[in-house]
Simulated scan of single mutants.
Amino acid sequence: MIFLREWDGEEHLYKQLMLYEDGKARSLLDKNEYVPFAEFAPDGEHLYFVKNSKYTETSNNRTQPNGFDIYKMNLGTEDIEQITNMNTVSISSLQVIEDGEKLMYSTSYETSSIEILDLSTGETKTILPESTDYSKAQSPSLSAPRLSPNGEMIAFADVASKSKNGTFQYEIFTMDTEGENISQVTNFSDYAGKPLFFQESNKLFITVDRNFAGRQPDYEYWVVERDGTNRKQVIIEIPDHEEETS
């Protein structure tokens, strides 16, 4: 299992790539290599991930990760291959699609777009909404886009409204891969994001943050039909860890 270990340090936020196997967890990269996204290739032997190349100073005497690109790791040898050469401020999602032949990712610096990279040719297709009227932000954010298993639909989060105090309220939208037929799926009047498609159904798994404007998130998890109907909250109970006694 791959997971991201996150903690806040004196200089910056850390997000370290970790591997859990045989009952033990170990790091795959140094703690200063900030990894916001990682996904297995279909063969289970390779891993694609987003990583920074540097940190830049901010106004509050801290630093933030910068210079992002996409990389590929052979989990057997742990050799790393750099896939892109963007050195960009932000890559805000990553998905392995079409049986590992392509990658879908999004960028969110100044303007947002969805990109599909063909790994064999190196060619990139840019997907933008046909109209920006659906978004109440100055420009669409296209947050956490996810391609459906049949490759016909993209789900993403964007600003659908503003609260009385001016806080953006995000909802889930869908559109086709040409950026057309945009439809709002949810209506939580809060922050709905990180949509995931179920493999063989018309349902989405969604994360809702009830304290989006606050310091500490208050997450809920919901399942909803792709047309917005029949939404149901999923309660996840994590058991207390009990020490083993001999």
Rank of each mutant, 00 (worst) to 15 (best):
Asn150Phe: 00
Lys164Tyr: 06
Met104His: 02
Pro149Glu: 05
Tyr109Val: 11
Ala155Glu: 01
Ser148Thr: 04
Thr126Leu: 07
Leu142Ser: 12
Lys125Arg: 14
Glu178Ala: 13
Gly166Asp: 14
Lys162Cys: 01
Glu101Gly: 09
Thr167Met: 09
Ile127Glu: 02
Leu75Cys: 12
Leu119Ile: 06
Met73Ala: 07
Thr126Trp: 03
Ser92Tyr: 05
Thr77Met: 12
Asn181Leu: 01
Thr186Trp: 09
Gly122Ala: 06
Leu128Val: 12
Ser131Thr: 15
Phe168Arg: 12
Met73Leu: 10
Ser139Trp: 11
Met86Thr: 12
Lys136Gly: 03
Ser93Pro: 06
Ser120Thr: 12
Thr132Asp: 15
Gly179Ile: 05
Val159Glu: 07
Val96Cys: 04
Lys136Met: 13
Ser148Leu: 05
Arg146Asp: 01
Gln138Leu: 14
Gln138Lys: 15
Thr167His: 13
Phe156Asn: 04
Glu115Asn: 13
Thr126Val: 14
Gly179Leu: 04
Phe68Cys: 11
Asp69Tyr: 13
Ser161Pro: 04
Phe173Glu: 01
Met104Ile: 03
Asn181Cys: 01
Tyr170Ile: 00
Asn74Leu: 06
Glu101Tyr: 03
Ile182Glu: 00
Ser131Gly: 10
Ser90Asn: 10
Asp133Ile: 13
Asn74Ile: 12
Ser183Phe: 02
Phe173His: 02
Thr177Met: 09
Thr84Gly: 06
Glu110Val: 13
Leu128Glu: 13
Ile182Tyr: 00
Pro129Met: 04
Asp176Tyr: 02
Tyr105Gly: 06
Glu178Val: 03
Thr84Pro: 10
Thr126Gly: 05
Ser131Leu: 07
Ile127His: 08
Thr174Leu: 01
Asn150Leu: 03
Thr84Ala: 09
Ser106His: 06
Leu75Ile: 11
Ser92Arg: 08
Ala155Gln: 02
Leu142Cys: 09
Thr167Phe: 14
Ser135Ala: 11
Ser143Gly: 08
Ile83Lys: 12
Tyr105Cys: 07
Ser163Met: 02
Met104Ser: 02
Ser148Tyr: 01
Ser139Arg: 12
Tyr170His: 14
Ser141His: 15
Ala157Phe: 05
Met104Thr: 03
Gly76Tyr: 08
Ile127Ala: 07
Thr186Phe: 04
Leu103Phe: 01
Asn85Met: 13
Arg146His: 10
Phe168Ala: 14
Ser161Asn: 10
Met175Lys: 05
Gly67Asn: 08
Gln184Tyr: 06
Pro129Trp: 04
Asn85Gly: 14
Thr107Leu: 07
Ala160Pro: 00
Pro149Ile: 05
